[in-house]
Amino acid sequence: MPGPSDQVKALLRAHASGDEDLFYSVALQLAAQSARRGHSKVALELRDLIDKSRSKQVPRGQPTPIGSPRGELSELLAITYPDEGLSQMVLSDEISATLGRVIHEQRQSDQLLRHGFVPAHRLLLTGSPGTGKSLTAAALAHELSLPLMTIRLDGVMSRFLGESASKLRLIFDEVARRRAVYLFDEFDALGSDRGATNDIGEARRILNSFLLFLDEAPSESVLIAATNHMSLLDPALFRRFDALVRYALPGRAQAVSVIRRRLASMDSSQINWNAVASETHDLSHADLVKAAERAAKDAILAGGSTIDTPLLLSALAARRKPSID
């Protein structure tokens, strides 16, 4: 992770090359680091200078335009521009409140930094597969008008000594250089307990490097780690995150909302929703969406647009078969 001297050099290089986006990105990092170290006056002065010198802003509602990752980074990061926000998701009140606070703090980051506080920018999402963790990362990117950078952990993990930590450094250098939402999906592959009996020295070095990089990550970017197996994570990770968001399988009311939303373009007036609700247990958000899609397709292929209760119940039952992925 670049230190202050590296950032000063980066400022000069950006100025010399005329890269205005990079120049302001590095300047914002310096201001954030000053705030984290308690130098609120310096952070405030830097922010004021940045605000005064900035000639244009990216309009809200549009993703920050950045080029696709190149070179080795192209094997480590996948970039997308999500077009659906939190309003398209069915979330519990608790999760909605937590994510809403993160968005509010990010949007008001200037105000927080002026007083020496850093906005929430490191989130740990945990829960069963298909409960909405990856969708949350995409929705946050949309809400903040940022691109979503998904880390390819299969590209990060290497059997060669020291290579994985070097790849992590490349990723976190990009975190510092380009503002975005960065998603580490299936994070337990990277953040497993260092005290595990089957652990090896290289895995410990990777996790130690990640912890160091995470501590130094600038607040302009949002870092999200998602895992299906929280029990496998090293305890040292938890205090590094600003918020822990726990996802659960939807209750009956939530499940019906998920299905209704997906079938909005179909005629669902023939559905007995109480009967459907009683058959949604043990199914994830993703399962419910797939079941709704299957029922809709069956109706369309049969020449209509009406979905009845037996059709939807059959689709729900099919999602419980082991042969269905």
Rank of each mutant, 00 (worst) to 15 (best):
T136Y: 02
R204S: 11
D93I: 09
F210G: 03
A248K: 14
E293Q: 14
E279N: 13
S25E: 10
F160I: 13
L288M: 08
L49H: 12
N274Q: 15
L214W: 03
A296E: 01
S109I: 09
I300F: 02
T150F: 06
A217I: 04
V102A: 00
L99D: 07
S92F: 09
F184G: 00
V102K: 04
L46N: 06
D93A: 11
T98S: 14
F117S: 12
S25G: 09
E75R: 11
T64A: 14
S17C: 11
F23R: 10
A32R: 12
G304S: 01
R122T: 01
I171Q: 10
A217T: 06
I200G: 13
F210C: 05
F23L: 08
S34A: 15
L233D: 04
A203W: 11
V118A: 03
P59Y: 02
A295M: 02
S145P: 00
V26W: 00
S166R: 14
N274M: 13
H281F: 11
A277R: 03
L311F: 09
A138H: 03
V118Q: 06
M89R: 00
S209Y: 01
T64E: 14
K52D: 14
A78K: 13
T306G: 08
K167N: 08
S158L: 04
V289E: 07
R54T: 10
E216C: 09
V175F: 00
G304N: 01
V102T: 06
L73C: 06
A248C: 10
R204N: 15
L46F: 04
A291T: 08
Y81Q: 13
D51L: 08
G18W: 02
I300L: 12
E105W: 07
L44H: 15
K56M: 15
S278A: 10
Y24C: 07
